[in-house]
Write a protein that binds this DNA or RNA. Structure first.
Length: 585
RNA sequence: GCGCCCGUAGCUCAACUGGAUAGAGCAUCGGCCUUCUAAGCCGACGGUUGCAGGUUCGAGUCCUGCCGGGCGCGCCA
């Protein structure tokens, strides 16, 4: 419907340009929005106010000129000029009835669009280091990223979901070494476990797995392992110690032995993350390995590009990227003195790789603590000679869990954090998916565990799902009462739907395409979450006020058409958020 | 210290990137089940949008300065 109003306005403006009221050759982008209150009609446009100056007319005068040139439309009941120069559009009921028909005809495509500017876009999210299970902090990024990707797709874009696997860093070496040490313990060696190693129970599981495959092949006496090593201790000492341990592991195990533990750790944890996310309704099209980035020469390729563009210099034996000249606060090292490339070099290469794979837009979903990345990645984009606009970083603020009104304390250091899996088991994946995205991504989130698992009307997830289930229930009752639902009869009788509740519900349904469009444009799944809550409210109110299964065949079928349309939209919206739409509850 | 994000009803949050009278849920108070699922509905109460200026037809939204909260500032990953 909104599209229709915009089209009418464009026609009127073209007419005005021909008549010389407005300067020619200007881009026309009519601004139409939903009115807040019914007295202002369905839609309002501020076009006359925006263009008044260049037309040399008062806003209200120009508004009249625009209205005079609006093409006739069967959907528009009337227009009016209001306030300082708004043009209000009052829609015909036929327009609303048309929406019901659209939904029933289009099925799953209703509300989904072919974007005006269709983009090929990659959405990278989660990308947690594969050094342990996902925790609740990753959950929000997962829920947000997955919902956003689905919404972008619904809005007509071509979307690829990517997980960047950090399988190349020092943390991975610490992980592999930790596994080996636990393995030695299982073999019966007595060792002091390093302060900065990975202490989680799951390390034993991986070590056990490795041992079941290789037996005692990589067992060494504990003394040989720790002999002459820099001592462990708090602070910097621990860092030196763990690095020395890694070196020792490499020396004693050799390439093949080291890989045994490295791969066991990586494979096990990555599979766990994959399964965890899958159970959370989050799937990726591509798991992109950082290690592969190095092997394929992509990192060198990116560095070469920066070199060609004259953005590199050498200082203290390291290769630096002159990021400070491109908007970053300082220059960044790409190749360290020891010859190894930095994590940042991989980031640059990965970005370039995304563009070279044919994506014109790269979205990154990061935790709020990564905001320092924005400037440096944009500098990299500029340095590569690419449009910095092609890169978009979305920061997701932290979620704080509350149980019985108390903040749930968590710290990664103590290894005392709640995993995503635990959260899902406690409150269900559906509730978690909804709660994670019900707030704007740039807003801190208070996650109320008790509310999320409560089976009550206060819980928005159940409230929305209940609306869907209730509609299914109505159709089940229809069968039991030996009545039938005939869609064509209902369509012929739609004009019987004139109750206030019915009109409100139809208006809500008619907004769905706009909701998807703005949720996609603003990268804001919470807009969809709120909308579904509102749609459920309209349905429940209608349900309580009127009977659907009435004797009058025409009225009954018309009402069933309406609630079926509502159900389709509920199901589709829940689907985009990764939440089930149950038939019964 | 510098930089980024946030501040809206008692609480948790919306407000479609500048529009008309700032909206929901919870909490509090009062109603509705012999009728398609009460996991539901209806009503009441609740605001100087942190503070002070500025920009304009018009500001919760934009600009400046304060106040308060979160996060970040490694040849770490």
């Amino acid at each position: 419907m909104k599209d229709h109003i915009e089209e009418l306005l464009i026609q009127a403006l073209l007419h005005l340009q021909r008549d010389g009221v407005l300067p020619k050759g200007q881009e026309i982008a009519p601004q139409v929005e939903r009115s807040r209150s019914a007295e202002h009609g369905e839609f309002a446009s501020n076009l006359a106010m925006v263009l008044a100056r260049e037309a040399g007319r008062s806003p209200r005068e120009l508004a009249q000129e625009i209205i005079n040139r609006l093409p006739n439309s069967r959907q528009v009941e009337r227009t009016e000029i209001a306030g300082p120069g708004f043009i209000n559009f009052f829609m015909n009921r036929c327009a609303l009835y048309g929406v019901i028909k659209d939904v029933l005809r289009d099925g799953k495509r209703y509300g989904h669009a072919i974007a005006r500017r269709r983009q090929r876009v990659t959405v990278e999210f989660v990308s947690a280091n594969p050094t342990g299970p996902l925790h609740v902090g990753h959950g929000r990024g997962a829920a947000y990223g997955a919902s956003l990707a689905a919404i972008l797709e619904a809005a007509g874009h071509i979307v690829q979901r990517e997980y960047y696997v950090n399988d190349n860093g020092r943390q991975m070496d610490i992980l592999a070494t930790s596994v080996w040490l636990r393995y030695l313990e299982l073999c019966g060696e007595q060792l002091r476990f390093p302060h900065n190693g990975y202490h989680g129970e799951y390390i034993y599981d991986i070590a056990r797995l490795a041992r079941s495959e290789v037996g005692d092949k990589w067992r060494f006496p504990g003394q040989n392992v720790l002999d002459d090593l820099a001592p462990d201790g708090p602070g910097g000492q621990a860092e030196v110690h763990i690095d020395a341990l890694i070196e020792r592991a490499r020396t004693l195990l050799g390439d093949s032995g080291y890989r045994t533990f490295f791969d066991a750790a990586l494979d096990t944890i990555l599979k766990d993350i994959h399964d965890d996310l899958s159970e959370f309704g989050v799937e990726f099209d591509l798991w992109f390995s950082e290690l592969e980035l190095e092997r394929s020469g992509a990192i060198q390729h990116a560095i070469d590009r920066l070199q060609q563009n004259g953005h590199l210099y050498v200082k203290d034996g390291a290769t630096w990227f002159r990021a400070s000249a491109l908007g970053d606060e300082k220059d960044r090292v790409l190749t360290r003195e020891n010859g190894r490339t930095t994590y940042f070099a991989s980031d640059v290469a990965y970005f370039l790789n995304k563009l070279e794979r044919g994506f014109e837009h790269a979205i990154y979903v990061f935790g709020a603590d990564h905001h320092g990345y924005i400037a440096r990645l944009q500098a990299a984009a500029r340095g590569l000679g690419e449009d910095p606009e092609s890169l978009e970083i979305l920061l997701v603020q932290f979620a704080v869990l509350f149980r019985e009104g108390e903040k749930v304390q968590m710290s990664t250091r103590s290894g005392h954090f709640i995993t995503l899996r635990e959260l899902r088991e406690e409150v269900s994946s559906d509730a978690a998916r909804y709660f994670y995205v019900m707030r704007s991504h740039d807003q801190h989130l208070d996650f109320d565990l008790d509310l999320a698992k409560s089976r009550s009307n206060e819980n928005p997830v159940y409230y929305i799902q209940y609306a869907h289930a209730r509609i299914s229930s109505v159709f089940r009752n229809l069968d039991q009462m030996d009545l039938t639902h005939n869609i064509p009869i209902g369509e012929a009788a739609l004009d019987l739907l004139g109750e206030a509740h019915e009109l409100e519900l139809m208006r809500a349904i008619s907004r769905y395409p706009e909701v998807i469009e703005s949720a996609a444009r603003l990268r804001a799944p919470h807009i969809l979450a709120h909308y579904l809550d509102l749609l459920a409210t309209e349905f429940h109110a209608y349900y309580n006020a009127h009977q659907f299964l009435v004797d009058d065949e025409n009225l009954r079928n018309a009402r069933l058409n309406l609630i079926l349309a509502a159900q389709r939209v509920l199901a589709d919206g829940l689907g985009l958020l990764g939440i089930a739409a149950p038939e019964e509850m």
